[in-house]
Simulated assay, not measured.
Amino acid sequence: MKAIWKIFSLLLLLPGLSFAQAKVDTIKVFSNAMNKELKAAVTTPSTYDGSQRFATLYLLHGGSGAFSDWHQKVTEPGLVNRLAEQYNLIIVTPGVGPSSYYFDSPTMDSVKYETYIIKELIPHIDQNYATLAKRESRAITGLSMGGHGAIMLSAKHPELFVAAGSMSGVMNIDTRMWKVPAEFSKLRTTQQKAMLGEDIQYDAPFTTYTAVGLVDRMKENGTALIIDVGVDDFLIDTNRQMHDMLLENGTPHTYIERPGAHTWEYWTDALPVHLLFLDHYLARE
């Protein structure tokens, strides 16, 4: 009994061993652009008490995913909470359509996710949470389709994001570059044509509905970029293409290839690396 009491007393004396925990809110945001309600999870650190304002990270899910994926599917339980606590920032994980790529479709009113994220969700978060509502204090990253969304949205809206990242991202929506079965490739191409029209420009010069079509804007914007992908990922060729194009036009960026595939094990390991990179650019009060 004395030994247990000594251990408990030691824990009380060590400030580094805190039992404080981040908090997760599930919210609903109505999209006027799409006339529907969407969910998001908002993680706030234990220091969130109204006495200060916080930098914000928007963390995007992949295709056929959900707003809760980053909380429920990572192989380290509570990873998002731990990182919100460690870096003392707000982390927002929004939910979008299953294969929407985070863009605004010119043909479908139900796919206006660029407008939703930029003009509806971010203002909602800034109005309802104690954020530092400025470019210097906002970053965005995501996995797979969410990597495409993060790179595309940051390239098109540099006034909103100081830094952006992609984990195993769809850097080019051209499924001919994906190492996938023909049936899957055909399905995704059919979905893309429904959203973008039959005359999608898959070859150079690329459409601006795909991340590689925005490399010139990335050079102009000065947004800090991190792109990583596993060497066994079916999207690796699209990431190498993006890397080569950024090198060719002289856009500073961090590019990483490491062991791994298109898996939650990979993304669980990747997210702390992204936070370490992104936090370097996020301004605090």
Rank of each mutant, 00 (worst) to 15 (best):
S31G: 00
A33D: 05
A33N: 11
N35E: 12
E37H: 02
L38P: 01
L38K: 07
A40W: 12
A40V: 14
A40T: 13
A40L: 08
A40D: 11
A41Y: 08
V42F: 03
V42W: 03
V42R: 03
T44F: 04
P45C: 00
P45W: 01
S46L: 04
S46E: 01
T47F: 06
Y48A: 02
Y48L: 05
G50F: 10
G50C: 09
S51A: 11
S51P: 10
S51W: 05
Q52K: 15
Q52T: 11
Q52S: 15
R53F: 10
R53E: 11
R53W: 05
F54G: 07
A55P: 03
T56H: 01
T56F: 02
T56W: 03
T56V: 12
L57A: 13
L57Q: 13
Y58L: 07
Y58C: 01
Y58V: 04
L59P: 00
L59S: 04
L60F: 02
L60T: 07
L60V: 01
L60H: 05
H61N: 05
H61I: 00
H61W: 02
G62N: 07
G62F: 13
G62V: 10
G62I: 10
G63M: 15
G63K: 13
G63D: 14
G63T: 15
S64T: 15
G65S: 10
A66K: 12
F67P: 00
S68M: 05
S68N: 11
S68Y: 07
S68F: 08
D69V: 07
D69P: 02
W70P: 02
W70Q: 00
W70N: 02
W70V: 02
H71T: 00
H71L: 14
Q72A: 14
Q72R: 12
K73P: 06
K73I: 06
V74M: 12
V74T: 15
T75M: 10
E76C: 07
E76Q: 14
P77K: 10
G78M: 11
G78I: 12
G78A: 12
V80T: 09
V80P: 04
V80A: 11
N81C: 09
R82Q: 14
R82V: 11
L83Y: 14
L83H: 11
A84K: 06
A84R: 09
E85I: 07
E85Q: 14
Q86A: 12
Q86K: 13
Y87V: 12
Y87W: 10
Y87E: 10
N88A: 02
N88W: 08
N88E: 03
L89W: 04
V92Q: 02
V92E: 01
T93K: 03
P94S: 09
P94D: 08
G95I: 03
V96T: 15
V96I: 09
V96F: 09
V96Y: 07
G97W: 04
P98S: 14
S99Y: 09
S99N: 14
S100P: 13
Y101W: 15
Y102A: 06
D104M: 00
D104A: 03
D104H: 00
T107K: 15
T107L: 15
M108Q: 04
M108K: 10
D109A: 13
D109E: 13
S110C: 11
S110H: 14
S110W: 13
V111I: 15
V111A: 07
V111P: 06
Y113N: 07
Y113G: 01
E114V: 12
T115F: 01
Y116H: 08
Y116L: 10
I118R: 05
I118A: 06
